[in-house]
C-alpha cells in the first residue's frame, strides 16, 4: 500500500474514532451508510473489473504499441484517442507504456491524446455513468470530453 492510501486510511479512521467518541449510534449509522453506498456499486464494479481483466490480456501493451507507435499526424492522434477511450488500462501500466512508445518514436501529440482519453472518456465505464446520469447526459459528457481534449492538444 502506498503512502497516499495510508494517509487516507489514517484520515478516515481518525474521523471515525472521533465520531465514535462523540456519538455511538450515529457512528453505527455512518458505517451502515458507508456499507450501503459500497454495496450499491458492487454489481457494476465486479463487472468492470472482469471486463478490464479480459481487455488487459487480449489487448496487450505490445498489441496497442504496434498500432500507435507507427502512426503519425492527425490520424495517429484520432486513433490514439479512440484506443484510449475504449481501452481501460490502469495508470501504472499506461504511463510506462506511453513512455516506452515515446522512446520508440511515437509523437507527443498521439501520446497526449492516448493518455487523456484513457483517463477521461472510458467507454467501458459508460454503463455506470448511464445509470447515474442518464443516456443523454453521458453522451454529451463523453462527446465534450473528447472534443475539448482534441482541442486542447
Amino acid at each position: 500500500m502506498d503512502l497516499f492510501t495510508l494517509v487516507l486510511y489514517g484520515l478516515a479512521l481518525g474521523f471515525l474514532l472521533f465520531s465514535w467518541i462523540r456519538d455511538r449510534s450515529r457512528t453505527k449509522e455512518t458505517l451502515r451508510r458507508a456499507w450501503k453506498a459500497f454495496e450499491n456499486i458492487l454489481p457494476q464494479l465486479f463487472g468492470v473489473v472482469v471486463l478490464v481483466g479480459i481487455m488487459l490480456v487480449v489487448l496487450s501493451p505490445a498489441t496497442i504499441g504496434r498500432f500507435l507507435g507507427r502512426e503519425s499526424g492527425l490520424r495517429g492522434v484520432m486513433f490514439a484517442a479512440v484506443v484510449g477511450a475504449i481501452t481501460l488500462i490502469p495508470g501504472f501500466v499506461a504511463f510506462p507504456l506511453a513512455a516506452m512508445l515515446l522512446r520508440h518514436g511515437a509523437g507527443y501529440m498521439q501520446m497526449g491524446a492516448f493518455i487523456s482519453t484513457l483517463m477521461m472518456v472510458g467507454v467501458i465505464t459508460a454503463p455506470i455513468e448511464v445509470k447515474y446520469f442518464g443516456r443523454r447526459m453521458t453522451f454529451f459528457a463523453m462527446a465534450w470530453r473528447s472534443s475539448t481534449l482534441s482541442w486542447s492538444l
Partner: peptide, 29 residues
Amino acid sequence: AVVTIGYSLREMLLVIPPTFLLIGLIDVW
C-alpha cells in the same frame, strides 16, 4: 485474465474502504 482480475480486485478492495468511510461520515455528520 483470471490472475489480472484477482489482482485488481485485491488492489481495489485495499484502496477503496477509506473513500466509503468518508461517504458515510459526510452523510451522517
